[in-house]
Write a protein that binds this DNA or RNA. Structure first.
Lengths: 398, 398
DNA sequence: TGTCTCATGGAAAGCGCTTACCAGTTGGGA
DNA sequence: TCCCAACTGGTAAGCGCTTTCCATGAGACA
């Protein structure tokens, strides 16, 4: 909202009084004012911009304090008759409280900051949905920031949220342990630390951010990536007898790393040799690239021999979809020529065929949990996220 | 951020001075203060919460006005040497400007409100991505609200954004002309109108909201749904000789209605009889429901006769996917037993097989355009959105 | 040297609210 | 009848900034 606009008039009285009033003048505040003729008792003044509390108070013939107490919830409730008058006045003027001013006065903004890598990614938009739902339930608004997954931009976002005095921040998206991110990670940790010390609360989805101590104001919603990947591997190894390949994100991307580690452990549990790992981008196109590469390997093998058939584990669903697309592109079929599994169980991918074996994660719930964790004070043992292996056609019999 | 917290200390000086200082006392403001011993020149005072401009100013030995001019961009730039001192002080204290206070003082918040039906829906998350990108480019933050598509909740969201003094609002998602929404639509229009008169700008994606006059502060990014659906129908009619069926959203949902109308017109252009219309929910499950129903019809027909083969048009991609899932469920295959087309060309659905014929829309670009339209002042003729028909396998030969 | 202009830092008045404190009433108990 | 507690509404002091206006000093020019 810009400055006061001198050539517009608010005419909430409506009905017939819509003619501009020639003797409109300036008051001591240099504001454009308007004397409304049909009012007898006092000179009603309608200002040009959003009306303020004191305008409402003046119209109602009470003090701003009283008006505030009536309109914006307070421990003290003025007399019913007065309250009614204030409400009427507010209605007449179309009063909307200035949240900025309230925030300043009360030092509480009702804002929740949400940081994601990419809001268009269904993984993040599902989490965002949960955050949004929780925020609405708690009568908060959510501020959104996207970062492309770089800790440097995450730090920027935290600073911006801190400036806006967001009451809490929810950060979703894999951490990075790559050495080139080390510096940015430290900065991010410092920024978060400062934010927390100033009374902010933060909820992190996935894994803790290195360098920030877990305190009451800093909660992590841990996703048991490793355990679940391990379960998945064990389940797959039960029926699959050929070699395994993992299509992973870049080394140092914690989520991917955890899933890789868990999967390898699961294979080892099952007495299988470790899987080969292909590192690509942690998205659909990365999966596609890997798929093209793997297609060669598959074609070179004897696909009819069960002990040569490949089982490919994409460390997230969209990568797995990318792999599938590449294999199809190369004339190979899943699960006929290779098995394929993903991770996350993205809702929008469930109609994909062959149906993707994956690990189901309650994404929306995770968003909700992370949000609530920053809002409530019970340190109630970091409500654990439970996921489950969901085997479908893509790892079925050829 | 809560009230001042009396038992936490900010120790930005760091390194070694981390011991609590026993003679911390209260100043006239009743704030917890801390005298830092190693400072000689003046008594540096570190407050408990985020430090303020005047604290920075005091530390730098200048007035708040000067500090403000140095730190938060102003036409007047103080002397380099002074500026440096202020910057140092700010750094030392870890100063972060209070955006709320700035907003109040400058009456400009740097906030953009985004209203969508459902952020988890890939259609909306793609648009959100565009909005976010534009916002970032213009150094704004985005406030998010989801409404499940009801005008009543949209109105709430507008009011909330108005209270937060968002500079502009972007509204995405189909309008509704259903009679039960008439009242809420009027309210929404009134709320928007008020918002605009108070200096707010709004950008609407899709179709104009009834009852709000198109002004400089109210822009619509029109999506040529009707034209594109018409193009699609004509293209399909070129090869498809059997009957057409439209799987539409509820009657009164403008986006759906427009696409239906355009499609019918296209059929008529091509000399084909009008399509039957099935009204279901405007989402994947609606499509699924319709698909189950249509499966019966398909099974009852002679699928080998080209003039009996059905071509199904889902008025958006996710509905079409729902239809496909249902047909598959019923043992039918696309395009073998029926042709299928969608609308939107959702990115995440492109790996779906059979590849879906659809209408491509630059969703992210639309979000960007809508945002920029609310930010720029050139009334540059509502940059038109261009879409295009994309025929793929799902409407190919059986 | 005197005057005028321009540049520069500071004082202070808000921005639109909330809330601690105050003063005036009322009512009840002694 | 008097006193005190309990209410009630109003006054005013902020919340943390920005920005107008002012005072001062320096330079320019005659």
């Amino acid at each position: 909202m810009g400055k006061r606009i001198p050539n517009a008039f608010i005419m909430t009285r409506g009905s017939g009084s819509g003619n501009r009033f020639p003797e409109a003048g300036h008051d001591c505040n240099n504001r454009m004012l308007l004397k409304v003729p049909e009012t007898e008792a006092f000179e009603e003044e309608l200002s040009v911009t959003a009306s303020t509390l004191s305008e409402v108070a003046k119209l109602a013939g009470v003090s701003p304090a009283t008006a505030s107490r009536v309109l914006n919830g307070s421990a003290r409730t003025p007399a019913p008759e007065i309250a009614e008058r204030v409400r009427q006045a507010a209605d007449t003027l179309g009063y909307i409280a200035n949240a900025q001013a309230q925030a300043l006065a009360k030092s509480s903004t009702g804002l929740i900051g949400l940081i994601v890598h990419d809001i268009a990614d269904p993984y993040f938009s599902a989490i965002a949905q949960g955050v949004q739902a929780a925020a609405r339930q708690e009568r908060r608004m959510v501020l959104l920031a996207t970062t492309n997954g770089t800790p440097a931009e995450e730090k920027e976002a935290v600073a911006a949220f801190a400036a806006r005095r967001a009451e809490s921040i929810v950060i979703a998206g894999s951490r990075s342990t790559r050495s080139e991110d080390a510096r940015a990670n430290t900065d991010l940790a410092a920024e978060l630390d400062r934010y927390c010390r100033n009374g902010g609360r933060v909820g992190v989805v996935g894994q803790a951010i290195l360098g920030v101590a877990e305190t009451d104001s800093y909660r992590t919603i841990t996703v048991p990536n490793e355990q679940l990947a391990r379960d998945l591997a064990r389940d797959l190894a039960r029926t699959h007898k050929g070699p395994f390949v993992i299509v992973a994100g870049p080394e140092g991307l914690t989520t991917s790393d955890e899933r890789v580690m868990g999967f390898q452990r699961g294979l080892s549990d099952a007495g299988q040799p470790a899987a080969d790992i292909v590192h690509v981008a942690f998205n659909r196109n990365g999966g596609f690239d890997a798929g093209i590469e793997l297609a060669w390997r598959i074609k070179a093998s004897d696909r009819s021999a069960p002990d040569q058939r490949l089982c490919i584990f994409g460390t997230n669903d969209v990568m797995a979809i990318g792999v599938a697309a590449a294999l199809r592109d190369q004339g190979l079929r899943v699960p006929h020529d290779a098995s394929l599994a993903g991770f996350d169980d993205i809702e929008w991918l469930r109609d994909f065929r062959p149906a993707l074996s994956t690990v189901s994660l309650p994404l929306e719930e995770i968003g909700r949990l992370a949000t609530m964790a920053t809002l409530s004070n019970d340190d109630g043992g970091a409500a654990a996220v439970v996921g489950s292996v969901t085997l479908r056609r893509s790892t079925g019999s050829p």
